[in-house]
Amino acid sequence: MSRLSELFKKQNERVLNVYCTAGFPQHNSTIQVMESLQENGANIIELGMPYSDPLADGEVIQSSGNVAIANGMTIDTLFAQLTLMRNSIHIPVVLMGYMNPILQYGFEAFCKKAKAVGVDGLILPDLPLYEFEHIYGKTVQENQLDFVFLVTPETPEERIRKLDSLSTGFLYAVSSSATTGQDKDFSKVALYLQKLQAMQLKNPVLVGFGIKDKETFDAVCAFSNGAIIGSAYIQALSKGNSVQETTAQFLKAVLK
């Protein structure tokens, strides 16, 4: 059983997935950030691979990616940093990124290496369903990686079922059609999450985009298995002094 499946078997509510950008704030801070997240109560780590043109991301994550690229972060470097990750990180780790850098690395080589260093799954927001089914999905499955699709309030029910059937680990419910880091109207989000709940999907549902603090985390946890926090944590990291202190304070405030 995958680490993600085991996690959701033990805990099916208030699962907290925190996004961080590899190579941010420092070139060598990747593992330190991940350890702090684990230590302070995150249940899953979503590790972002920086890209020059991240279409789904708002300004905060874009600029963390630019810092990381300037710091010299590449997929190669990242895998080198993650080689000994499983000595200290025991919670599930999901890689998030865009297709272009992965294609340059080689999709199959990427999946093999990800599995080898102990990555559990992938979130690739610009890999569409059609290409996943016809070209890339097989490689993901052969390497026993989970694959997480996104659904939005605009996604038709039939398509949600299809995306759920192709996903493993969890399903990523985008809170509204928007880029990351925007404020949301959570009364609308609640209706959408209730609809997803009523569909009795195969996968646990984690809600992302616009989740930034205890209030928004609690709001979506009422109708889902948990949530993903990204921009708000990156913003805290970019302001904070030490990774350890910032992470402890940030997660304490969300989980209190």
């Binding site: 610009d126 569409p128 059609y130 290409e131 996104l150 996604t155 038709p156």
Partner: peptide
Amino acid sequence: GGAYIPEMLYS
């Protein structure tokens, strides 16, 4: 070609 877009643009 193709349509390599995030789900938010799908509809």
